[in-house]
């Protein structure tokens, strides 16, 4: 029973890994499609997509822009819960929401900048820089108020959103870009460079967590003992919050500013209901993340609904299911 469960989980993680690598492969080909060998491979990918659509009777996989959205989604489904597991258990669940609003201010700054100057760089890159600055700002505030209380978080959240709205209002008429896409997310506006950015960020985040898994776990569980063991707690805290900013900016494209915290929190909450160990919490939260993303995409595309809302609703349904299942198993334990 225990072994079967473990094997199922590992199988799920292996499948997720395969899916993520396939998506990274697509993003790479999408990027290099001008070049000789890559273009041939890219064509194969397109053909495979058309075949998939033919056999499934869908109209999804033959469109590169939907592949880009799916790739971005699958990667969010991996790195969101991965970073979120540490955040939730540090009682920092809303930090993602805060940093999303900071990144929103970044988008506004980028919009204003690109419409008043000749600069034409990526808005997401500006959002990333501002998001990371915001992360360091929250870290600075919490160190000085001596707790991860929600007051600095609330101040940062509303403050950066306020600045964002001011800038947008000031620059109104100068920009043609629809700010709603950033607020609510939109599958059809994920740009090739945005998807590529998500790809690169995901590889970096997974690598960093793989290397610092032990330190982040120790600090999350018992910060004081970690300090005594001479772990550089401030440095790892900063690393975690910067990674959060990175994930949030990537996820913002699909989920939008308002819903982005969902992927950091909901899969982790569901996993925590069922998991026995911390490692299992990580695995299960990534699996719940994938279920939310894939289910959400299916719902969104088939019913022509917004992707962000669909993903969150599917995620919460999975969470409620996990609560019900864990209630039953808790009852079964107490009978013994």
């Amino acid at each position: 029973m225990h072994d079967t469960r473990r094997r199922l989980e590992l199988g799920g993680i292996a499948l997720t890994g395969l899916l993520a690598v396939t998506m990274l492969g697509f993003l790479t080909l999408d990027w290099l499609q001008e070049y000789p060998y890559a273009s041939a491979l890219y064509e194969q990918f397109r053909i495979a997509g058309r075949l998939l659509d033919y056999y499934l009777g869908t109209n999804v996989f033959s469109h590169p822009y939907l592949w880009r959205s799916m790739a971005t989604g699958v990667l969010i489904g991996v790195v969101g819960p991965l970073v979120g597991t540490y955040l939730v258990h540090r009682e920092m669940a809303l930090i993602g929401e805060t940093l999303a609003h900071t990144a929103f201010a970044g988008v506004a700054i980028g919009l204003l900048f690109s419409s008043t100057t000749d600069w034409s760089g990526s808005l997401l890159l500006v959002a990333l820089v501002v998001g990371i600055l915001g992360a360091l700002g929250v870290q600075w505030l919490t160190e000085r108020t001596d707790t991860y209380g929600d007051v600095p978080i609330a101040i940062m959240l509303t403050g950066s959103f306020a600045v964002g709205t001011l800038i947008i209002s000031y620059g109104r008429g100068l920009t043609g870009l629809n700010i709603q896409n950033f607020l609510f997310g939109n599958l059809s506006v994920i740009t090739p460079s945005g998807a590529r950015l998500m790809g690169i960020l995901s590889v970096v985040v997974v690598a960093v967590v793989a290397v610092t898994y032990k330190q982040l776990l120790f600090i999350t569980f018992d910060e004081q003992a970690a300090r005594v063991a001479r772990l550089n707690v401030t440095w790892y805290n900063t690393l975690l919050i910067v990674m959060t900013a990175v994930v949030v900016v990537g996820a913002m494209q699909v989920l939008g500013v308002i819903l982005v915290a969902a992927m950091l929190v909901i899969p982790v909450a569901a996993a925590t209901q069922l998991a026995h160990s911390f490692r299992e919490t990580l695995y299960l939260s990534i699996l719940f993340g994938q279920v939310s993303i894939i289910g959400g995409f299916a719902l969104s595309i088939s019913q022509s609904l917004p992707a962000g809302g669909s993903i969150v609703v599917v995620g919460i349904a999975a969470y409620l299911l996990a609560v019900l299942v864990s209630d039953r198993s808790a009852a079964a334990v107490s009978v013994h």
């Binding site: 258990h89 569980f221 001479r230 911390f278 919490t281």
Partner: peptide, 19 residues
Amino acid sequence: RGGTMPVTVREVVTMGRFA
């Protein structure tokens, strides 16, 4: 965090090897 975080006894003791 002991109240909510799913961590096994072995995982806690293993933290002693992290340093």
